[in-house]
Amino acid sequence: MKLRIQHTTKYHYDAPVSYGLQQIRLIPASSKHQTVQSWAVDIKGGSTELEFEDQYQNKTLLVKADPETTELSVDVVGEVETHCSDGVFGRVYGTAPLWHFRQSTPRTQAGRGVRKLAKTLQKAPDILDGLHALSSAIIDAAPYSMTDTEAHTTAEEALSAGGGVCQDHAQIFVSAARVAGIPARYISGYLMMNDRVDQDASHAWAEAHLDGLGWVGFDVSNRICPDERYVRIATGLDSHDASPMSGIRLGSARESMIVSLQVQQ
């Protein structure tokens, strides 16, 4: 399936920013599951200082805001041909060892709620069934809600708030899987939706590692495994690692952000 993506993120600052940096993870890599046919990132109000691969082989840009700018925008346009994968990403490994994906992070540190949820995994006859059950249990416990969480919310917090977005669902999933000793990771990317072109935000899902199958994807929010409507962008232990944008700036300017995203065939 050929997917066309147009994604604009525009930051507005209420005072000129003398110095600011943004780490941008918005460049997909080609793999067995997707072929990047064209991809362009255009920065306005800033300049690309460098490009590197991080520890998860995410292609990352470091962008510097132009001095005294009040606006920084990142435009992404591209086409990706996806190939059906039945949710199995497979035995593809980067430099990070598997045990690393059992390490928790501040955002995925399991608390009482997550640990309780992780018991789902023990009850199931095999691990794969267990993970599916876990996925269902998460979305039942924390149904989709735009208002319960924000960018820094941890897995445990989202669970006790009883609602969340795809980021929260994926983080709860990896957190619970790691409690059971299963390597798990967070994926950010795009999802083509059948009923609309315009979307509010990019997507996120989770992957768990099984000995035979390798990495298997779980889109908790949509209760399915990723298929050919999914374009994978970045990987990490949590939403921070795989964040499309993370920045730092000097001064006291406040920022507001507008996102426009279209994903279509």
């Binding site: 691969e53 991080d54 520890q55 082989q57 430099t95 990070a96 045990w99 690393h100 390490q103 232990l237």
Partner: peptide
């Protein structure tokens, strides 16, 4: 010993 060690810096993996 490595996995549970704060001194292990994931950002250095592969560098």
């Amino acid at each position: 010993l490595i996995a549970q060690n704060e001194a292990f810096l994931p950002q250095m993996i592969g560098v």
